[in-house]
Design a protein around this nucleic acid. Structure first.
Length: 196
DNA sequence: GTACTGATTTTCT
DNA sequence: GAAAATCAGTACC
């Protein structure tokens, strides 16, 4: 089933942990692409590394809106990254989706990423948005009621997560501030994470 | 295998 | 004007 809005209203750290194993789904005319979330990072209130630090701007407006929406941003002149807005409305908290295990629409992902190496399709925040064709057009979409959705971990019958997956909690990567906060989560030993 | 660099543009100071 | 929640290619073990 699609994760309900109440899921996103829980505290951001719990949401990040619970999002591991869930499925990010993008339905388009061209086809549907699906990946299992295996790595993410939380960005929270009073967090110097968060885009919401410093208050509302044109770019980060969606972060301060209701939870359960997609916050997409453009970075380094060529990549997009996607977050799920979480926690209490107005705090500017979100979970950055950093890596997926490809689950469906793999042919489309290969064409978009121009590679057929499975581990290269979605193993990074900029790669997975290419593979699922998530762009600035998707910024602000409701993850509970739009072509961009997140499904609970047990909802895709033919793709059961391996039993006994363990969650690792450690420091975030690719940032220069607040590098000591343990806000990155990933599934231990998974081949598809962006970096060990 | 690891290390370094260039691409490219929006955003805020 | 500098920095940015990145990636792919190249060089060199």
């Amino acid at each position: 089933m699609i994760l309900p809005r109440t899921f996103y209203e829980q505290d951001t750290l719990s949401a990040a942990r619970d999002l591991l194993g869930c499925f990010l789904v993008h339905r388009e005319e061209e086809g549907t692409t699906i990946g299992r979330i295996v790595e993410n990072e939380a960005y929270v209130e009073n967090d110097q590394a968060a885009h919401s630090y410093g208050g509302v701007t044109d770019r980060n407006r969606v972060l301060f809106g209701p939870p359960g929406r997609a916050y997409v941003f453009f970075i380094y002149g060529l990549y997009c990254c996607v977050n799920a807005v979480t926690g209490r409305e107005g705090k500017g908290e979100a979970v950055l989706i950093r890596a997926l295990e490809p689950a469906d629409g793999i042919g489309l992902m290969e064409a978009r990423r121009k590679t057929d190496k499975l581990t290269a399709l979605c193993s990074g925040p900029g790669k997975l948005t290419q593979a699922l064709h998530i762009t600035m057009e998707d910024n602000g979409l409701s993850l509970t009621d739009s072509p961009l959705q997140i499904w609970s971990a047990d909802s895709i019958a033919r793709y059961q997560p391996p039993p006994g997956d363990q969650v690792v909690q450690t420091t975030r990567i690719g940032i220069s501030k607040s590098t000591d906060l343990p806000l990155r989560f990933y599934i231990r030993g998974n081949r598809f994470i962006s970096k060990k």
